[in-house]
Design a protein around this nucleic acid. Structure first.
Lengths: 236, 236
DNA sequence: ACCTGAACACCGTTCAAGT
DNA sequence: ACCTGAACACCGTTCAAGT
């Protein structure tokens, strides 16, 4: 009646190593976050569960709580982790407009590559990767001569615009499923008397090009920021 | 050993009415949605549960499924419901810029009044209230002479901007809790060597005025949309 | 210092059954 | 047509216990 792991003489060789080269590397916060990102990429936010995450890591779900305080922590860490992929332009290597455009585009690319991320943006983003990129944004704007209240408006405006755009695009291009988009199109066509303009000019009528839409709006914002900056520079 | 609701002679007067003036109005999809909005307003999205919602309505949770297909349905319906409060300007009563500004401002006001809503924007919004307001937006822009690809860019840009702004503001002004904001401020101060610009010019340094920030960014977008419109009008 | 298992207090949803 | 109760297959998280 030996219990599961009780030792009896000479059975060392029969027992499999406590862990070792079974699931390979030991558990760590870093490994948890990497696996969480992989899980989110493959299956979406709805399927991220402490139990399922633990299973992929070869442990019980309760073990995760030694490395991480809550599931929300995992989400915060995963969200910050993906921003490591956004390259920070070398400061001053180009004019402010090119630098900001590069950063914002990289930001957007990351959000679209990990569609689950857009829905998580409603939480404070204070991870080191996000902060480093915000620092560059502010530094570039300040360097361009943008001052309050335009500075805050510019930084927020640009961030809000990428976030909103990514959220909208991720919503409507969810994993190849053209079904909801198709259904919406049909609904508008069937109700063209109630929504005449939407039915004929709406975003679902042509195959709207997300990239050029985004670029146009970004240019408008940059124009505005630039004109205020010039005005400020010229003032005594 | 009479079971709970079995009748025995003369006990009609003793039994409370099956429903009647107990919880007042009968259950209906409309009542469910209204109660859901109230629950969300009072306690936030994290506490909306089919069981808790049913309790507030005086029924069992499983009863809700007769009127509604899933919990997601409840969320979709609640989200659309709050947009009924956004007044649609009378078409042509003012110039396009004033009309658009009024609509977008009303949109923003609703999102901020119901802070839980911002986090739910990552789902297709095809309810009648939202559609009616989108129709006005498109109609106004088309009436102003905005044409593709600027039309889609303008409509999306404005929507994305409000959504992003409301999401950001709702994130950072969550129910009077100044604690996280204060903690973030301290963190940046303590790490001013790593984030020099953020620490001195960042959004958390002064008490940023959300309203003027929003207004500035909106003006930049409208300027951009307007300039493109003029250019188009003038072209042969 | 790290990992495990059992357990608690919940979830959304289905379905046979009642009126 | 509408409502109920029991039940299923999950959740996040805690905690005493192991090594």
């Amino acid at each position: 009646m030996a219990a599961k792991h009780s030792g009896s003489a000479g059975d060392v060789w029969l027992r499999r190593p406590a862990r070792a080269a079974r699931e390979a590397p030991p558990l760590s916060r870093d490994r948890i976050v990497r696996e969480a990102v992989a899980l989110l990429d493959e299956e979406g936010a709805g399927r991220l569960t402490m139990r399922r995450l633990a299973e992929r890591l070869g442990t019980g779900s309760t073990t995760l709580y030694w490395h991480v305080k809550t599931k929300d922590d995992v989400l915060d860490l995963a969200l910050d982790a993906i921003f490591a992929a956004v390259e920070i332009p070398r400061p001053g290597a180009q004019d402010w407009r090119a630098g900001v455009t590069a950063l914002i585009s990289g930001w957007r690319a990351v959000l679209l590559e990990h569609p689950w991320s857009a829905a998580l943006l409603g939480r404070p983003m204070l991870g080191p990767n996000v902060l480093a990129r915000s620092e560059f944004l502010y530094a570039t704007l300040v360097g361009a001569g943008v001052t309050e209240p335009h500075l805050t408006a510019a930084a927020y405006g640009l961030s809000n615009y990428v976030i909103g755009s990514a959220l909208m695009q991720a919503t409507w291009t969810a994993q190849e499923e053209d079904a909801p988009r198709q259904a919406a199109r049909e609904f508008l066509r069937d109700n063209r008397d109630r929504y005449p303009v939407l039915a004929t000019h709406g975003p679902l009528t042509g195959d709207s090009d997300w990239d050029t839409s985004f670029a146009l709006g970004l240019a408008w914002l940059l124009d505005g920021i630039g004109s205020d900056e010039q005005r400020t520079e010229r003032a005594p």
